[in-house]
């Protein structure tokens, strides 16, 4: 389905609507199937029998994925009903929250659980909860200290201490 000019929909949504969401899904399935078939071919020489070895499941799954993907891509009729992807400020907040999560992954080993959680929760309270700076910092301090104590002291979960040396 083609969109009218000046459509304000976000780019991935426009793209998926133009080509048909199911069709794109079918093509991705074919791609995954081909990767699986490639891996099956690579492992084939390690077999102990035609149907005994690590190549069997990747081969079977790859074949079915290619077939089903092709069926979906060919027979996709228009677009299945989907929920609208976020736009504008909501999209920025969503992407920002995702970026903060990846920053958390990067920081936790380096700064330790307490410090990284404190920084990250400030960001999440700002983007997701939409609190002001003061409230975000105050709540972040309470939450990070409480969770650190709960997990590390009460539940004895080993969490990274980082270069600061404080969990």
């Amino acid at each position: 389905m083609f969109e009218a000019e000046g459509d304000s929909r976000s780019h991935p949504e426009q793209l998926s609507r133009r080509f048909g969401q199911d069709r794109i899904g079918g093509i991705i399935a074919i791609g995954l199937g081909l990767v699986a078939l490639g891996e099956a071919a690579r492992l084939y020489h390690l077999r102990t029998g035609t149907l005994v070895g690590d190549h069997v499941m990747p081969g079977a799954i790859g074949m079915f994925l290619v077939i089903l993907g092709a069926v979906l891509a060919v027979h996709a009729e228009g677009n299945t009903p989907t929920e609208k992807l976020p736009r504008g400020r909501t999209l920025v907040r969503l992407c920002g929250s995702f970026a903060i999560l990846f920053a958390y992954w990067f920081l936790m080993d380096r700064l330790g659980y307490l410090a990284s959680t404190f920084l990250v929760i400030i960001g999440l309270f700002k983007t997701m909860s939409q609190y002001g700076w003061l409230r975000s910092i105050l709540y972040a301090a309470i939450v990070s200290v409480t969770l650190s104590y709960l997990f590390m002291n009460l539940l004895n979960i080993a969490l990274p201490v980082g270069v600061i040396g404080v969990g």
Binding site: G25, G26, A29, L32, V35, A36, E39, L43, L46, R47, T48, V52, G53, D54, M57, P58, I61, G62, F64, L65, L68, G69, L72
Partner: peptide, 24 residues
Amino acid sequence: LIMGLSGYLLSLVGMGPASTQARF
């Protein structure tokens, strides 16, 4: 079915049970 097969595919990541060679 495609989702199920994709789940199977992800479960194959790691060491193969027969050859103990790395897969995917």
